[in-house]
Computed example of a mutant assay.
Amino acid sequence: MKKSLLIFYFLLLYALLEMFWWGTVVIQLQPQRMAMVMGEGSVFLFLLCIGAYFIHASIKKEDKLHEQQQNFLLSVTHELKSPLAAIKLSLQTIVKRDLDKQLQTSLLNNSLKDIERLDDLVENMLLATKIESRTYSFPKEEFDFSELVTKITDRLQVHSCGNQQLINTKIDNNIKVVGDKFALSSVVTNLVENAVKYSGPCAEIAVSLCQNDGKPFLTVSDKGPGIPDGEKMLIFDKFYRVGDENVRKSKGTGLGLFIVKEVLQNHDADISVKDNTPQGAIFEVTFN
C-alpha cells in the first residue's frame, strides 16, 4: 500500500509540473493569453487537488481495511485454536488416564463449553457475511425475550471465582418481542460476552431486562476499561476494536458489535453506550 501511495504522489507531482511547464510555454509564445491560461490553470489545479484528496482518502481507507482484515484473520485463528486445544487436551486426558466419573464429567462439561464458544464464533461469521451481502431475511415471530436472555446469561455465567456468580441478572418475566429469535440471541450473546471479556478477573457484570414505557429495555453493564467518547460510535463498525492492535490483550474478531448494530436496525431498535461508574461501559438497547 505504501508503494501505491508513492506512485500516486509521483504522478500527482508530474501532472503539476507538466501543467506549470505548458502554461509557461504558452504565455511565452502568446503573452496576450496569460489571463486565459491563469484562469484555466486555476480551475484545473482546483479539480486536480479535489481529485487527489479523494483518491488519497480512498487509498488510506483501503489500507486501513486491509490491516483490519489481517488482524481479523489473526484473531479468528487464535479464537479457533484456543478452544480446540482445550477440547483436545480434555479428551486426551479422559482417554489416557483412569479418571473417576466426576472428573470425567467435569472435563466433558468444559469441552462442551468450548464447543459452544466455537459455535458462537462460527455463527457470528456466518451471520455477519449474510447481513453484509443482504441475503439474510430476518424471519420474525413473537417469542419470550425474558426466557432467551435468562438462558444466554446462564450459559455464559462465569464460575472462575469459587462459587461466586459474576453475571448478576435482573430480568422481568414474560417480556415478549416480535423479531428474529436467532439474530437477537446473537445480540444478547455478543453484548454479554464483550462485558465478560473486557472486565477484569472476578469483576461483576450486570444484565437487566425490563419494560420502559411499555417497551423492552435491555442493559448490559461491565467494569472494564471503558470506551473513550471518540470511539463510542466507531465500535459498531466492522472489524473495529478499541485500543492499539499491537498491545491489545483481549480476544475478539471485531464482528460482534457490527452484528449487534445491524440486527437491531432491522428490528427498529436503538443501542447506546454510556460510561459506567466508577469505570466500565453500559450498553442500552431500546425496542421501539
Score class of each variant (00 low, 15 high):
Lys3Arg: 11
Leu6Phe: 12
Leu6Ala: 13
Ile7His: 09
Leu11Thr: 11
Leu12Ser: 10
Leu13Met: 14
Met19Val: 05
Trp22Pro: 01
Gln28Leu: 14
Leu29Ile: 06
Gln30Cys: 05
Arg33His: 06
Arg33Asp: 07
Met34Gly: 05
Ala35Thr: 08
Ala35Ile: 06
Met36Ser: 12
Met38Ile: 08
Gly39Met: 15
Glu40Ile: 06
Phe44Trp: 08
Phe46Tyr: 12
Phe46Thr: 09
Leu47Asn: 11
Ile50Pro: 04
Ala52His: 06
Ala52Cys: 08
Phe54Gln: 09
Glu62His: 12
Glu62Ala: 14
Asp63Phe: 03
Lys64Thr: 14
His66Asp: 14
Gln69His: 11
Leu73Pro: 02
Val76Glu: 11
Thr77Phe: 14
Glu79Arg: 08
Ser82Glu: 09
Pro83Ile: 09
Leu84Cys: 13
Ala86Pro: 01
Ala86Met: 11
Ile87Gln: 00
Ser90Met: 03
Gln102Gly: 05
Ser106His: 10
Leu112Cys: 04
Lys113Thr: 04
Ile115Gln: 07
Glu116Met: 06
Arg117Asp: 01
Val122His: 12
Leu126Asp: 03
Ala128Tyr: 01
Thr129Ser: 10
Thr129Trp: 03
Ser133Glu: 13
Thr135Leu: 13
Thr135Ser: 15
Phe138Asp: 00
Leu148Thr: 00
Lys151Asp: 04
Ile152Glu: 00
Ile152Trp: 00
Gln157Asp: 05
Val158Phe: 11
Ser160Trp: 05
Asn163Lys: 14
Gln164Asn: 12
Gln165Phe: 09
Lys170Leu: 06
Asp172His: 10
Val178Phe: 13
Lys181Ala: 13
Phe182Asp: 00
Leu184Gly: 00
Asn190Thr: 06
Leu191Lys: 03
Val192Gln: 01
Glu193Asn: 15
Val196Trp: 03
Lys197Thr: 15
Ala203Leu: 04
Ala203Ile: 02
Glu204Met: 10
Glu204Lys: 12
Ile205Ser: 02
Ile205Pro: 00
Ile205His: 01
Ala206Ile: 13
Val207Asn: 01
Leu209Thr: 01
Asp213Pro: 01
Lys215Thr: 10
Val220Trp: 01
Asp222Ser: 08
Gly224Ile: 02
Gly224Trp: 02
Gly224Leu: 03
Pro225His: 04
Gly226Val: 05
Ile227His: 01
Ile227Val: 15
Asp229Trp: 05
Leu234Asn: 09
Ile235Val: 15
Ile235His: 00
Phe236Cys: 10
Gly243Ser: 13
Val247Thr: 15
Val247Phe: 09
Arg248Gly: 05
Gly256Thr: 00
Ile259Met: 08
Leu264Trp: 02
His267Tyr: 07
His267Phe: 12
His267Asn: 14
Asp268Val: 10
Asp270Val: 10
Ile271Gly: 13
Ser272Val: 13
Lys274Ser: 15
Gln279Ile: 03
Gln279Gly: 07
Ile282Trp: 05
Ile282Glu: 06
Thr286Ala: 09
Phe287Trp: 15
Asn288Arg: 14
